[in-house]
Write a protein that binds this DNA or RNA. Sequence first.
DNA 1: TGCCCGCTTGACCGAACGGTCAATTGACGG
DNA 2: CCGTCAATTGACCGTTCGGTCAAGCGGGCA
Lengths: 220, 220
Amino acid sequence: MPRTTDAKERLLAAALDLIWSSSYGAVGVEEICARADVGKGTFYHFFPSKADLAAAAYEAHWLEVQPLFEAVFAPSIPPLERFQRWCDEIYEKQMELYRRYGHVCGCPFSNVGSELSTRDEKLRQKSAEMIERSMTYVVQAIGDAMRAKLMPKRDAREAAEDVAACVLGQILHAKILNEPEMLRDLDRIVLRQLGVTAAPKKTVLFSPVRSPRKPKSAAA
Amino acid sequence: MPRTTDAKERLLAAALDLIWSSSYGAVGVEEICARADVGKGTFYHFFPSKADLAAAAYEAHWLEVQPLFEAVFAPSIPPLERFQRWCDEIYEKQMELYRRYGHVCGCPFSNVGSELSTRDEKLRQKSAEMIERSMTYVVQAIGDAMRAKLMPKRDAREAAEDVAACVLGQILHAKILNEPEMLRDLDRIVLRQLGVTAAPKKTVLFSPVRSPRKPKSAAA
DNA sequence: TGCCCGCTTGACCGAACGGTCAATTGACGG
DNA sequence: CCGTCAATTGACCGTTCGGTCAAGCGGGCA
């Protein structure tokens, strides 16, 4: 066993994978340890409890996906196209998980929020925080879109919450129906919610958003 | 003990209450039995498993709320007003649960769907079926709204799916933030999704939709 | 009256749960 | 070369899980 240990990282990755593709309650500590190939003692050497590991795993996952958010929502990209790219990333990621596990796994943050909001205040807050961080980018893009007169003016924060609801809801619905193709046109719902009158469908064609995409972690 | 037993109904009610306000995984059979005031043997006399009880509880809950759907989505009511009434019912119900349990409990059908879609195919299907039944009314209302030229014409089924996503998503977001007031203006998101240009706010004033409402079970 | 049978019970089962801990390992600094 | 200590292990803890079962109860009916 190497001195410089990566057991902690393996535990974080194993926890995220297992909980995402299943659920918090249905995944046992033993199972996570087995996947990470460590003993149970190692688990409790690094994390005081299962809930703490979950919170840490989500934090680590955010650090992993944040660069993707930065790229997808880059100010250099036309505002409305950012939403399309974001939706495409979500679709690709869910497709990847669907191929691997046979299930639409949904948004990892809202999954744990839905399951544990009424039971574990700490994980509820963590879930809320992760979604809030994602929404930051949406708020920015909406502000830019309004300034560019690409959509009707309104409160950006409020509009972003509406968009978040649409995205979370469609992902959830796709999970319940186990039908990943429901997410192919996620951007349609978002743009409609923003009051965009079906204009920017061509921007998709301008840049290769849909077909060749590097798959990477993405979630609402 | 009376010959005509209501133990089954008490079990169904207890299961719905406990699972709705907590989660499927976090609620034990023992706990359900205690709430229903029956022995564990009685549980397994009526239901072959915990999952079967849950499915039966959702079925029973649907029978309970269906009349409310019929009333809220009655053809005699102007189409767009039906959505407002529906959203108001959701808000009232969630507020009621929030007052009782201190938590936004969310939609019982999507809760179980989110938690168990990847683990229990039978409950996933049940969850999907419940949401589909609700959507029937939405499809009808959208069709009526389009015929009355109250909203832009498009595929009614597709529009209903978009509406369902918005509603499910906003309820989920409110649950995660534990903020029931997020649901006060649920109809705003729905109408925006339908492309209604902020017109029918007055219809709310015409009939007493918002203030005096009989609280009853309602969910997406 | 007495049998029948739907209903009810709670002790009990093996398994799995989250979590503990004394013992061991092995890379590093002195 | 040794002492130190983070890292690691897996047996073990008490509890709780979903589920089983032999036995008892008691209204309805023959």
